[in-house]
């Protein structure tokens, strides 16, 4: 049906407006893609080529030197380890808190409105940097992995979308389960969650990407180099200048790394996991936002 419609319409859609519009769309898409292409390009280019070529559209010689240096250095791997721990534990923590709250707010109970407003209020007003910093300090979380996990708990937007998802499930399910004497926990874990599996996976991925991209808590609270998350390690590499990049035994051996190449290679390594997950995510993202937008 869909395809039929599309074929039928096609001849109509060819006036000057369409041509210009499509040209604009494609041009903007290329503009979005170019920085990615540039990074990948530089990461595979030998330094000599990079300096000599006036403007590089495609590579003449390829080299893996930059990647070699990135994988040689330990910092990327310790960062990766920390980020993996933070992401896995963090997402479990996020999902636990968010699912329970979304489910609870989907029900009617005395005081619901008060609690809901209290939660939403924090979207518009917060304590700011210093009280937050001192709180983490007072909790004794300084320089701990927990300082990157615990403070990010519930995204109110995700919680709202989940709540709407739960609300759209047929009510008879919970009603009949209640008749049979099932507790709220049984209903949530045995009936609601299995039915919501695609939604649960989607939000776990959302949170996962956020965790993967997190660096700010690490920058504030982490002092030991070996506890730095990947993004913070990457930030260190990017913000360093010239030959400081990844000062390792390579430099002692007289190999001066091509700093731009190493920077770009680190970027490519860091963003690859997100890029691989992205195509799967996109559809659900759009759906999730659509629910939130239309009803919210």
């Amino acid at each position: 049906m869909e395809r039929y419609k599309y074929k039928k319409r096609r001849p109509v859609a060819c006036n000057w407006f369409d041509v210009l519009n499509i040209a604009f769309m494609v041009l903007f898409a290329l503009l979005i893609l170019y920085p990615f292409y540039n990074s990948v390009l530089v990461s595979f280019t030998p330094q000599t080529d990079y300096i000599k070529t006036p403007f590089m559209l495609y590579p003449k010689n390829l080299t893996l030197d930059s990647y070699y240096i990135v994988f040689e250095s330990k910092v990327i791997f310790t960062g990766l380890g920390v980020t993996l721990v933070v992401t896995v534990l963090g997402v479990i923590y996020n999902m636990f808190l968010t699912l329970l709250m979304a489910y609870a707010f989907n029900r009617e109970f005395p005081g619901k409105k008060f609690f809901l407003y209290a939660v939403i209020f924090t979207m518009y007003f917060n304590g700011g940097l210093i009280p937050y910093y001192l709180l983490i300090k007072d909790l004794g979380l300084m320089d701990t992995i927990s300082s990157m996990i615990l403070p990010t708990g519930i995204s109110i937007m995700y919680m709202t979308v989940m709540r709407k998802y739960f609300a759209a499930l047929p009510e008879e399910l919970t009603e009949s389960a209640k008749m049979d004497g099932a507790s709220e926990f049984t209903i949530l874990f045995r009936i609601i969650l299995p039915l919501s599996l695609p939604m649960v996976v989607t939000f776990a991925l959302y949170y996962g990407i956020e965790r993967w991209n997190e660096w700010w808590n690490g920058m504030l609270f982490i002092k030991s180099a070996f506890k730095q998350p990947l993004q913070l390690v990457l930030r260190g590499i990017i913000q360093s200048t010239g030959a400081q990049v990844m000062s390792s035994h390579l430099q002692e051996a007289g190999i001066v790394p091509f700093s731009d190449g190493v920077k770009m290679a680190s970027i490519v390594v860091t963003m690859t996991p997100v890029m691989c997950l992205y195509p799967f995510l996109q559809r659900y993202f759009v759906q999730g936002l659509a629910i939130g937008a239309v009803k919210g």
């Binding site: 920085p35 990615f36 540039n38 990074s39 530089v42 990407i209 991209n213 997190e214 660096w215 993004q231 913070l232 990457l234 930030r235 990017i238 731009d260 920077k263 770009m264 680190s266 970027i267 860091t270 963003m271 997100v274 992205y278 995510l281």
Partner: peptide, 13 residues
Amino acid sequence: FLSWVIVSGMVLN
């Protein structure tokens, strides 16, 4: 879906 750290790296270059 990329952090500003990554984007800044690409852009600074």
